[in-house]
């Protein structure tokens, strides 16, 4: 009887580890398409190693979030969708180059990082509000969005990353205000 119970305990432990491995495998496969974005960012970047570094971190974070599941899992797609905005803007901005008025020229990439970051923050904030999700969702979606955007903005160094972060913070303001107002009423 005791050996039967031990057998069952062993089966339970093995089942648990199989479950986790299956989830991990599924998460890696599920996040594999995101490597396409990493490839695009590396191909069009002047500093592909930086893009690759952020891309690998993005893959690690995305796969971990998918493996964990629950509320976090639902943050991956909105995060990626939001992060693609600054990434594409920067790639287009890099293609155009500079915007010059008179004697002063501004890098469009930096503007793209700030504007893209703002849009990404707005998208993540809106999707968090729409789903009435918690802080965990917001953290996961923000990480994925910022890492996706950072693959392209990293070509400008700290300025690009800083611009992306600042823009992202601004983009979150409407959802924060809405949240504060709903709490007040």
């Amino acid at each position: 009887m005791e050996s039967e119970s031990k057998d069952l305990d062993r089966t339970l432990q093995r089942a648990r580890s199989r479950y986790e491995w299956a989830r991990a495998r599924r998460a890696v496969l599920g996040f594999l398409p995101a490597l396409g974005l990493v490839g695009v960012a590396c191909a069009f970047s002047e500093r592909p190693l930086r893009a690759l570094g952020f891309g690998l971190v993005l893959f690690l974070v995305g796969a971990t979030v998918l493996w964990y599941g629950r509320e976090l899992r639902r943050a991956v797609l909105p995060g990626l969708a939001a992060g693609v905005v600054p990434m594409l803007l920067v790639l287009v901005g890099a293609h155009v180059g500079h915007s010059c008025e008179g004697s002063s020229c501004t890098s469009l990439c930096l503007i793209a990082c700030i504007v893209g970051g703002t849009l990404a923050g707005f998208v993540v904030g809106a999707s968090k509000t729409a789903r009435e999700a918690g802080v965990a969702f917001w953290l996961a979606a923000s990480s994925v969005a910022l890492l996706t955007g950072a693959m392209a903005c990293s070509r400008l160094g700290f300025a690009g990353i800083g611009g992306l972060l600042a823009g992202y913070g601004v983009g979150l303001v409407p959802s924060l205000i809405r949240r504060a107002l709903s709490k007040a009423t």
Binding site: D7, T11, R14, A15, R16, R18, Y19, W21, A22, R23, R26, G69
Partner: peptide
């Protein structure tokens, strides 16, 4: 049955 339980729970995510 033990093998089946491993398979069932391995596929639980599906």
């Amino acid at each position: 049955a033990q093998l089946a339980m491993l398979k069932i729970l391995e596929r639980a995510a599906d």
